[in-house]
Computed example of a mutant assay.
Amino acid sequence: MSKLFFMLAASCLFSPVNGQIGINTSNPQGTFHIDGAKDNAATGVPTLVQQANDVVITPQGKLGVGTVVPAENLEVNSGINNSSGVRLTKLPSAAILATDANGTIISGNTESAGVSVTKQKMVSASPSFVLNSGSGAYSFRYTGTATVGGEWQIKVNNGVTRAFNIWDVEYWGQNGVGTSATVYQKRTVKSITPNMWTNLDDNYAGGADEYNVYHVYDLETGAILRFTCTLSDVSGIKESMILEEF
């Protein structure tokens, strides 16, 4: 026991004047301060680089990670723009976060709540333009080019091979040549293997005056996708896509 106490005492520097405890630092900036890399100066406020590996609890009970001056009850400074520095290991691919009745953070992706919208404005048709859903679980593209028709495709980015129910409603306009407009409808049930581009159906989308609305149902996860896509003959075939994920 005495050996353990000595080791703890050696690793901590205690200031009896203000009751502060510092681990790896003789210059604690809060009631409890850990200098992870033991790189802080003996006096003054640590630099931002030095604070990056620090953890502090202030006299007000605020916890700072990567900062010694937390402004909220919990503040995490990852030091990297657009990165929170917080990982919820058991809550991956949640496009929406919510809280339950107890205030616990949960996924907001449910059957009755949560929708994300992604879009691609009209560009020259090319398979290189890929539209991803808000969760990142699904991707869509058109295989044609500005002069050659192709297929609308889906790629499932996670999970296992599973069944999808796909409804296709296609409007083929007059295109300024006086032909009658046509409406095409088809329902397809198919098994889709993740990480492989798969045609949404066997309808060749080669026309330059087409408007498609696909309703795609992931029968395993319950996800619903509404994929609206357009081909238009504007100085070469142009494509545009709108993707809603429910």
Rank of each mutant, 00 (worst) to 15 (best):
Y214G: 02
E239M: 14
K62M: 04
L74V: 11
V216D: 01
S235M: 03
D39Q: 06
K190M: 13
G66R: 02
G206L: 03
Q51V: 10
V183E: 04
D35N: 14
L8I: 08
W197P: 01
L13H: 14
R87I: 10
A223F: 00
Q51T: 12
F32W: 08
L225G: 05
G108P: 02
D233T: 04
N175Y: 02
T145P: 15
G30M: 05
I80G: 04
V117R: 03
T104E: 07
C12N: 13
N109M: 04
A208H: 09
N77T: 07
G222H: 01
T145G: 15
S240T: 12
E239G: 13
T99V: 07
G61S: 12
G136A: 14
I105A: 01
D209M: 05
T110Q: 04
S2W: 10
G136V: 13
V69C: 05
A205T: 05
V45S: 09
A113D: 00
S107I: 00
I192K: 03
L48W: 08
S26D: 11
E210Y: 03
N195M: 06
G150Y: 06
A101L: 10
A9N: 11
F5L: 09
A205D: 14
V69F: 05
D35C: 13
S107Y: 00
G173P: 05
G222R: 01
N195K: 06
G66M: 00
G61A: 11
Y217V: 15
G64S: 15
D54T: 12
D100M: 03
P92I: 06
F32L: 12
I21M: 15
N77P: 03
K38W: 03
F246A: 04
F6Q: 13
E210L: 04
E244T: 01
A41Y: 10
L8M: 09
V86W: 09
Q29T: 05
S116I: 00
N40D: 08
G150F: 07
S135L: 01
P59L: 08
P59V: 08
G85H: 13
L200K: 01
S107G: 03
Q153I: 05
T145S: 15
G44D: 06
S15T: 12
E75Q: 15
V86D: 06
G222C: 02
W197Q: 02
V76F: 14
P16D: 13
V156M: 10
V183D: 03
T58D: 12
A146V: 11
S116Y: 00
M122E: 15
N81W: 02
G36Y: 04
A137L: 13
V177T: 15
H215Y: 05
L88V: 12
I23W: 07
N81V: 12
M1F: 11
C12F: 07
L131D: 09
A9R: 08
T179G: 06
A41I: 03
A98G: 13
V69Q: 11
N157Y: 06
